[in-house]
Amino acid sequence: MITALIVDDEPLARKELRRVLSKADDIAIIAECSNAIDAIGVINREKPELVFLDIQMPRVSGIEMLSMLDHEKMPHIVFLTAYDEYAVQAFEQHAFDYLLKPVNQTRLEKTLERLRRNRGPQKIGELPGASQLRQIPCFGQHHVQLVRMEEVEYVASGVSGVCVVTTDGSELPTELPLHILQDRTPLLRCHRQYLVNIDFIEKINFLENGLAEIRTRRGQNIPVSRRFFPQIKERLGIL
């Protein structure tokens, strides 16, 4: 069986896709999501093989969502769009599959057939505009918060997962791993467990043994490890 996830903000669109997929016996729909942020969590936890991903969704678009996923563990992505000439062209260039809504049964069957033949990891190029994150989706008890890059003071990884610390001191857990945030945001790696926003560094205290400590404008101390210190000095222009 191929495990699949449907991501679309319109309930009837999800229902319609489920209906056309019901004719394929080997597809098991494990979940439906109505936005990209929920979907990231489901993908990270459930690891579906196939994701049907609508592009136009609130706050985080389908294309943006891709850059929040770990490329090493990327599921097969099939984009869904009602009408977007530009996007269709982009998908073709970057070897993504795409379906136009309302979905044509025959066309869907082709997509599934290709998938059945080649179930290895999808080798895809990045979509234009998808590489850099503008905001980090964070999860509270009952709500989702999108933190803009200029609001992030630093990001810390601990036993309970990754946590975004904002300039007003709130600590918000996120599903995104540190290495994705390091790759796709301007945040600077200063320690195995920390990323820091370079704009909020007030000073760097040199410690013994080649270690150092960053002090943020808000007065928070963030450790700097020996391994990352040279890179930080380079970025800040300290020789």
Binding site: E10, L12, E16, R19, A82, K101, P102, V103
Partner: peptide, 9 residues
């Protein structure tokens, strides 16, 4: 097209 998709559903 979204409207047509909804009607299809």
């Amino acid at each position: 097209f979204n409207a047509l998709n909804t009607i299809a559903a």
